[in-house]
Design a protein around this nucleic acid. Structure first.
Lengths: 364, 364
DNA sequence: GCGTCTTATGACATCGGTGACATGACATCG
DNA sequence: CGATGTCATGTCACCGATGTCATAAGACGC
């Protein structure tokens, strides 16, 4: 591979002059510049970032660690592969900053994380982002204090800056919107209880009910997610069966995620129930391939993954450039998304829905 | 950030000795080694890959260019986001080789590709892989001849080594299996005609029919994919309506992909048809979140994306190490996957299905 | 006891750029 | 006209590792 010295020789100038042409940091005569440019083109010269980095000590690289890429074929934990959208958001935000995003995948094994961090440090990344597969608490190995790091879709207990979804608000807004549509018996088929999101969503569910003066009825809340195990459909079937036989059955089923909603569609139809006239269904995630493909399209809550990524990246960039931003911060940054109202929920009452302003656009 | 010189000073040895401890390429006294190790730990020393690369001229980096990460939120071209699985496969294969995979995303804009390649060359990657979003022909900018490159899920017309799915064989095997199950009137709701995959799949469809002595009936083949546009469901509805009114209606609907199959499920059920007893449905892709979640689970063809990735990476690694492998090759490497037989297709005939050996395991 | 070999270590140049500084040729100004 | 400034370019050291060669201390063989 050609070097500046090769270029300099061909162009008949000094290496430093070639460097100046490359960086434009000092005036170079028009004629000389053209000579150099021609020599570079002729040799197919590409500068070595390694050599450049040695002097400047600036790599221009931001490291991203994720399981997003390898997760999908795993036994499928909670949601699906939505953390990928976070990576997209980060990608977009970093792209505009002139830095290069280097993505490393854990391959599903979190024990590889220290090794990945080590590799990034060897490349002298200017900052790190860790993206978790679902909203959770994590514990990462220690990072040198001069390398900023941001957690996306997760948090730790030592105050590392983080950006997470506002699960409580999302579920709250959905239930509030269902109430506005005239629903009073709102069933909630929850996620597994060990998930951080589940606790927060239940809070939101109850808050929305109590704000509307509706009593919380535990018989309408049940965990139906076994993490994709075989008998999950059976459990769903039994639960729905039980609820529909109640003297005062639910008029809408809120599902812990859109995937569960797909199953519920199949079950309800096998029971001969018409959607949405006889029973309404809502999801969570706005997993669009599903939500928009289903018939009728699914009402759900947008989980603003892309926005989480963008915010996390912006936060990191701020930490990199302005050393003034504190590296440790108090609370995680909460990001919420709008309720996506589609055909799977029946409007049972004519009410001034718009005045509720539930469908926010603030996550743009 | 500490350097070997800092470590050397603390340990009271020369820099070269520290280097020897790091690389283990020459004998170092036990006592000295421990002193050095302690100094490194104390300083939190991390070697600089830039400096190392300067001498050795070996980066240990493999570059991957893809739109996989940014595509999903685009207007959703053909399939879904399956190219991600290719990236997974590559990840797995590279991981074991001791090299580091650096992933760059096009952000959905192919005009950024030259810039990404340039960045990779600056980092002196040892090889490049380009992953396309769907089976297609591509034209990449020229790469220096000494940097090997492999195309995954795509090909070009200058003989760059490539690995692509065997669409003809996949569709053939599915149809052959349907025939073995007793189906004779097999409808095919195709992908858009401009896709490479569509042409190949039609070949496979017709080949399987003719091998079974079944006449090709054009009335059973229709394109129903508008690339996710609004009226797609309507088009599907009309097409299915027309086919079901035929004097000799189809007993099974083959869909161009699993996503279309989800729509078809909804439509058939809205028409009051029971799956799979009154009508069978098959997909393509084995997009498992859908295929396994649907009720009943969807029979489909596994599109072996992960295998494509693994093969592409293996091929690249061979090119990197053994310079003997030719950089230009004759034909793309074809990868095929098994038919995934699930509950959405009814067995209409008792036949010795297993003897057909349609369900291959050759993609591991 | 002396030459030879192995072990353990250091001095120094080198990789490909860039920062600091120097130099020569003009242009401008008082 | 000499002092000063700007432009265009070159010289040289340096960033942090590692390859080459040198050197000193023991171990071994005869």
């Amino acid at each position: 591979m050609a070097t500046i010295y090769d270029v300099a020789r061909i162009a008949g100038v000094s290496a430093k002059t070639v460097s100046r042409v490359l960086n434009g940091d000092a005036p170079v005569g028009r004629e000389t510049r053209e000579l150099v440019a021609k020599a570079m083109a002729q040799l197919g010269y590409v500068p070595s970032s390694a050599a450049r980095m040695m002097r400047s000590n600036k790599s221009g690289i931001v490291g991203l660690i994720t399981g997003a890429i390898s997760l999908p074929n795993e036994p499928a934990m909670p949601s699906g592969l939505p953390d990928l959208f976070i990576v997209q958001g980060i990608q977009r935000a970093i792209e505009g900053s002139g830095k290069t995003l280097m993505i490393a995948d854990t391959g599903g094994r979190s024990d590889r994380i220290p090794h990945l961090i080590q590799t990034f440090l060897q490349h002298r990344v200017e900052g790190l982002i860790y993206v978790a597969e679902y909203h959770q608490k994590v514990t990462l190995p220690a990072i040198p204090a001069d390398t900023p790091i941001v957690l996306a879709n997760c948090f730790d207990d030592i105050g590392t800056p983080s950006v997470v979804p506002d699960d409580a608000r999302g579920q709250h807004d959905l239930v509030a919107r269902l109430i506005a549509a005239g629903h009073r018996r709102i069933a909630y088929l929850t996620l597994p209880a060990f998930l951080v999101a589940d606790g927060l969503r239940r809070q939101g569910y109850r808050a929305a009910l109590s704000q509307a003066g509706i009593a919380y009825d535990p018989v309408l809340v049940e965990c139906c997610d076994l993490g994709g195990r075989e008998d999950e459909t059976q459990l769903l079937w039994d639960t729905i069966d039980r609820m529909m036989r109640l003297p005062d059955p639910p008029t809408v089923l809120c599902c812990g995620n859109d995937k569960m909603a797909v199953r519920v569609y199949g079950i309800l139809r096998s029971r001969g129930l018409k959607l949405p006239t006889e029973i309404s269904v809502a999801g969570y995630d706005n997993y669009r391939v599903m939500a928009e493909t289903l018939f009728p399209p699914l009402t759900t809550v947008d989980l603003p993954y892309a926005a989480i990524g963008v915010r996390a990246a912006q936060r990191l960039l701020a930490m990199i450039s302005g050393g003034d931003t504190p590296l440790r911060d108090t609370d995680p940054m909460l990001i919420s998304g709008p309720v996506c109202w589609r055909g799977s929920v029946m409007e049972r009452a004519i009410s001034n829905v718009l005045s509720l302003n539930v469908i926010r656009e603030d996550t743009k």
